[in-house]
């Protein structure tokens, strides 16, 4: 068991998302930074999809009612286990009764807390993640609150504290041309690639609104409702791009400028409000290579941690 002593308003149980239900309007959901999410789980010997806590704002305070191995990845928080400072990218031993405290994010937006055995919540509609917009999944379909008691899965036998080298994000994000890309004028496309885009405070698990010199869309052809996947860069009538994230609605109708490649979407997810990002034109081959590279990193990481078990 795990007790929530203090929780920010944006703190929920997530996994890697739902599959197979988008044709009835159910969003993919799941961790907004699946890359960091998987690393957190691997550190404590869990399966990649094991439910973790996604922490978007501090402060958060949690008390453990059993011995556990925990890990933090994603955003760097000023974090303490009782009075001892702990750091991202490590597997740390917790003794029953100890308290974990995350004050505020020093770098990044979303932090993942994994616990060996995972958080034990019921699967709803092919997933354990919280659908905050539609109030199901996770813990009672909502953000965590003070007083919540979360059940934990079966603990693993792990030998010692271990750390890994975490991937570093940068502001350079690669983008594939979207189906409506060619309907934008050359000048507007240039404008998109050449500027730094500001991350506004209107960012959540559904989408990130960016700010910069407006991109105009003057093409009169009708755009029919179509699938909207995480990473889609939409240009609404005001010309300020919206990038769709994990909780994006399943269909939409704004012009599709591009798709952020899957391997880079986590970088945008972790970019702080008021910071900027820059987009680079990419291609399918590069997108595949980048994803492969990420998979190799993850399997190497798993292998290196495995070797030191028992």
């Amino acid at each position: 068991m795990l007790y929530i002593l203090k929780a920010s308003p944006l703190c929920s149980i997530q996994d890697l998302g739902r599959v197979g239900l988008r044709s009835i309007g159910i969003t993919q959901g799941g961790a907004i930074d699946p890359f960091s999410f998987k690393i957190a789980n691997k550190l404590v010997g869990n399966a990649d999809n094991c439910p973790c806590i996604e922490i978007t704002l501090g402060p958060v305070e949690i008390e453990f009612a059993r011995d556990a191995w925990i890990s933090l990845t994603g955003a760097f928080y000023e974090s303490y286990l009782d009075d001892k400072k702990i750091y991202n990218g490590w597997r740390v031993k917790v003794i029953s009764g100890q308290k974990l405290k995350l004050n505020y994010a020093i770098k990044g937006m979303h932090c993942y807390l994994a616990i060996d055995g995972g958080i034990d919540v019921k699967q709803v509609l092919n997933g354990c993640g919280t659908d905050l917009n539609n109030h199901f999944g996770g813990y009672r379909g909502r953000n965590l609150q003070r007083g919540d008691q979360l059940k934990l899965g079966k603990p693993h036998f792990l030998m010692k504290k271990r750390g890994v080298l975490l991937p570093q994000k940068n502001k350079f994000i690669r983008v594939l041309q979207g189906p409506d890309f060619f309907k934008f004028t050359k000048e507007n496309c240039e404008k998109f690639w050449r500027q730094n885009w500001l991350i506004t405070n209107q960012c959540n698990r559904m989408g990130y609104r960016l700010q910069g010199n407006s991109i105009e869309f003057n093409n009169k052809s009708e755009i029919l409702s179509h699938a909207t996947l995480p990473g889609l860069i939409q240009i609404p009538p005001n010309g300020q791009p919206i990038v769709l994230m994990s909780d994006a609605q399943t269909t939409g109708g704004y012009p599709r400028f591009g798709y952020i490649i899957k391997a880079d979407l986590w970088k945008l997810a972790q970019t702080e409000i008021n910071k900027t990002v820059q987009f680079y034109p990419s291609n399918f081959e590069e997108a595949h290579r980048a994803l492969k590279k990420q998979e190799i990193y993850l399997s190497k990481l798993e292998w290196s941690l495995n070797e030191n078990r028992s």
């Binding site: 599959v19 197979g20 044709s23 993919q28 029919l224 179509h226 699938a227 996947l229 399943t250 269909t251």
Partner: peptide, 12 residues
Amino acid sequence: DVIIGMNNLTVV
């Protein structure tokens, strides 16, 4: 996943 839109279908 499979997603239907108006006049289109997307396979994930």
